[in-house]
Design a protein around this nucleic acid. Structure first.
Length: 714
RNA sequence: AGCGGGAUGGGAUAGCCAGGAGAUUCCGCCGGGCUCAUAACCCGGAGACCGGACGUUCAAAUCGUCCUCCCGCUACCA
């Protein structure tokens, strides 16, 4: 339906805005790296493209967190904004423009959107009930209310009975509403709010979704909504922090964070209104910086719909799949309502897991962007790992072990090795590129790789962008092995020169092809080839043009990640999780103390949120054991040394039960032992296993029947 | 609950949209080769009844129906 890339029209690639409310981790970075790689790839194809994003500065969570931190929301959010701006280049994510939603460009652009909707009669007012903290005179958006579910009686959030019956709750339904911010009881007030009549766009969206390109999930997921009945979107909030609703004349500038509310007339736009408009604003800022001759934002975004005027360019949104509906329902309707061009494609990626489990920022179970930067590993290694780790729409696993494996095998073994052996051979024997013609076979192979590259771009597969150069290197290794130029240099020097000429051409092609995913490394390689411009300016066709005749000593482009380094990074992560878990439990119990809960229940730790797989459980070798002897350990307050018969062998186990049990009477007691725990030394005494006991009093687990020592427990 | 996605050799993955010789790549395993190259590279081999059951078809991992298990989304929560 759409013309293939590259097209004559300018394009924009955007990334979902990071919400300026917390640090970035390597999960967030998947979107930005993918968007960056995709924009670079378009650029390689010769597409006129801008890559833009910005920080999302508004919304309740920022307002609340800023208040808690005792600062105004603007400086709170700006701090994160500045942090993000510094973080992205660390991962070679280079936006042409990176703005934020609170700047003047966006405020103005947002209000012009809203005015267009009003002019087009797409906005109406409706009275709705909103939860209110009467004591602090503060509105409570739904997540900030808790109470009792009217259907099942379970504790529930204001918008959803999340722990009980899963039912969606309308405002006003929840019983005994309480503010989660202050703990004050909440009341409901009737307030007038503005709504965007999405139903006006129902028919349009039905057509739009059929021509939308990108990943399948972006086209499929919103169908339920679009083909059903669209609810109108409430576009205002009772807040101070945000972009003022442009209804009143006095509200033409973004509100300063510290200012207090004039009256209860305060209405700002819902963050999801001004957030995506930042895509437009950021593009505009780019044009303002480089000039409309270089990049014309209006040619991309404005849809004049006439034959003489441009009809808009190629808009590609790269997002996480949690915000598909916003980009395929709300956003196209917003654009349409304001007379703007529609997105050509939405690329929605899966989440990033950490060692197979979800990130948990509250448990600090995360690899933060800073952690990666501090690891000293090159950003391109992360980029490659995350881009090629799975299909874009699928979840991808990040782990230091996985990173090491991919880097050592694919980037070092296959890619780096081919580049280095080729250039080294060429430099040693010919001081650079040998004087010979490129063979037809190699030329065809490079052309095929270029085709793969083009196809990947047009199919929105960033993963393919990562694979293509490595596959070409794999071919290169086979090629050089097959021709064994090291055997030819003496007897058939001309033949040897031909083979190496082929290899150098392959190297150059690889440099061009790897630029999107491995931009830093590609540039280094480009310089090694003796090129005097930047690979970032080279187009795809450069893969077939002749490399410079002479170049210097090559250097290995990638180096192995050593086991020690991975072990250190893993240890660092584990220690932090443990520390956070300890802290988390303390915090939980503090909370319990403050609330009027049943004492007996309040003393118990909550059930762990994170489920372990059956596979993980099976890794534990738990056995019945019989205590043969138990004696205190000198100098230790709590520790005792036990000899335990676990059937196959006798184990020495150290346990913290000295004061809690009559050690002498323990002999003959059946206990339960984790047999395959790693060995440890406590107070200088070897401990090989761990006995299981309940609670602070170390109530020993035993068997109900008479299972023999050594019996496996499952 | 509805909708969307997933289930492929020991692990991780591709193929499925546009059905066709018992299936890709990486790791691991077994055997061989090479020595230009970062203990890297190359070649060969073992190993999967493609979650289960029906069905369509000359032909199904690929299409349809049902089932099981996982995951995501479900709007005033960024």
């Amino acid at each position: 339906m759409h013309e293939e890339f590259p097209t004559e029209s300018p394009a924009v690639v955007t990334c979902g805005l990071p919400y300026a409310n917390g640090d970035l981790h390597v999960g967030h970075l998947r979107t930005y790296v993918s968007g960056d790689a995709y924009a670079r790839a378009l650029d390689r194809l010769g597409q006129n493209v801008a890559f833009v994003s910005g920080s999302d500065m508004h919304g309740t969570p920022i307002a609340v967190n800023a208040a808690e931190a005792g600062v105004d929301p603007e400086s709170f959010a700006l701090e994160y904004h500045e942090q993000y701006e510094e973080t992205f280049p660390e991962f070679n994510v280079e936006f042409d423009n990176y703005g934020h939603t609170h700047d003047g460009t966006n405020a103005e652009m947002t209000r012009s959107f809203v005015r267009s909707w009003i002019d087009g009669d797409h906005v109406f007012e409706k009275e709705i009930e909103v939860a209110w903290d009467a004591e602090t005179d503060q509105p409570l958006p739904d997540r900030f209310v808790e109470g009792t579910c009217p259907y099942c009686g379970e504790r529930a959030r204001g918008d959803e009975c999340d722990e009980g019956c899963q039912r969606h709750l309308e405002p006003g339904e929840i019983e005994d509403p309480v503010s989660t911010i202050t703990g004050n009881p909440a009341e409901y007030r009737t307030r007038p709010h503005k709504f965007l009549r999405l139903s006006d766009f129902q028919e349009y969206l039905n057509e739009f979704i059929d021509r939308l390109e990108g990943t399948d999930n972006a086209q499929n997921q919103p169908r339920e909504w679009i083909e059903g009945e669209l609810q109108d979107l409430c576009i205002t909030r009772d807040m101070e922090w945000g972009i003022d609703y442009p209804g009143s004349e006095a509200s033409e500038t973004p509100r300063e964070g510290g200012e207090t509310a004039e009256s209860e007339e305060e209405l700002v736009l819902y963050v999801w209104v001004d957030a995506p408009i930042e895509y437009v604003s950021s593009s505009k800022q780019y044009t303002e910086a480089v000039g409309a001759d270089t990049y014309d934002w209006e040619a991309v975004w404005k849809n004049h719909g006439t034959e003489t005027e441009p009809d808009g360019g190629e808009i590609v949104h790269v997002i996480g799949h949690d915000i598909i509906q916003h980009h395929t329902v709300f956003w196209p309707a917003m654009l349409r309502g304001a007379g703007f061009n529609e997105p050509r494609a939405v690329m929605a990626c899966g989440f990033v897991n950490l060692d197979g489990e979800a990130f948990s920022t509250s448990r600090n179970r995360a690899v933060w962007a800073d952690d990666y930067v501090e690891s000293g590993l090159h950003p391109d290694l992360y980029r490659y790992h995350i881009v090629t780790g799975s299909e874009f729409t699928a979840d991808v696993d990040f782990s230091w072990d996985g990173l090491q494996e991919r880097v050592n095998n694919e980037l070092v073994g296959t890619l780096g090795n081919f580049l280095y052996r080729s250039l080294l051979f060429a430099e040693r024997n010919y001081d650079g590129t040998p004087d010979a013609e490129v063979s037809e076979e190699v030329e065809a192979e490079i052309e095929a790789a270029m085709d793969d590259f083009r196809t990947a771009v047009n199919d929105y597969r960033v993963r393919g962008l990562g694979h293509t150069p490595v596959e070409l290197a794999k071919f290169g290794n086979e090629y050089i092995q097959r021709h064994e130029p090291w055997k030819l240099t003496d007897d058939e020097p001309e033949r040897a020169a031909e083979v190496i000429r082929d290899c150098v051409q392959l190297v150059k092609a690889i440099a061009v092809l790897m630029e999107p995913v491995l931009p830093g490394k590609a540039e280094t390689l480009w310089a090694q080839l003796g090129e005097d411009d930047s690979v970032h300016d080279a187009d795809l066709g450069a893969a077939l043009s002749a490399p410079p005749a002479g170049f210097e000593d090559p250097v290995e482009l990638f180096e192995q990640i050593e086991d020690d380094r991975v072990a250190g990074l893993n240890r660092q992560l584990e220690e932090r999780i443990e520390a956070a878990d300890d802290g988390g439990e303390k915090a939980d119990s503090d909370e319990a103390d403050g609330e009027e809960t049943d004492d007996a229940v309040a003393d118990l730790e909550p059930i762990a949120d994170d489920r372990v797989s059956f596979e993980a459980f099976k890794e534990l070798d738990i056995r019945v054991g019989e205590v043969l002897s138990a004696e205190p350990i000198e100098g230790a307050d709590k520790l005792a040394k036990l000899e335990v018969d676990i059937g196959l062998e006798t184990r020495q186990i150290v346990a913290g039960i000295k004061q809690l049990h009559d050690l002498e009477s323990l002999s003959g007691t059946r206990i339960v032992v984790v047999a395959n725990l790693e060995e440890n030394e406590l107070f200088g005494v070897e401990s090989d296993g761990m006995l299981l006991a309940a609670g602070e009093e170390a109530d020993l687990l035993t068997t109900h029947g008479d299972a023999e020592p050594g019996t496996k427990i499952r």
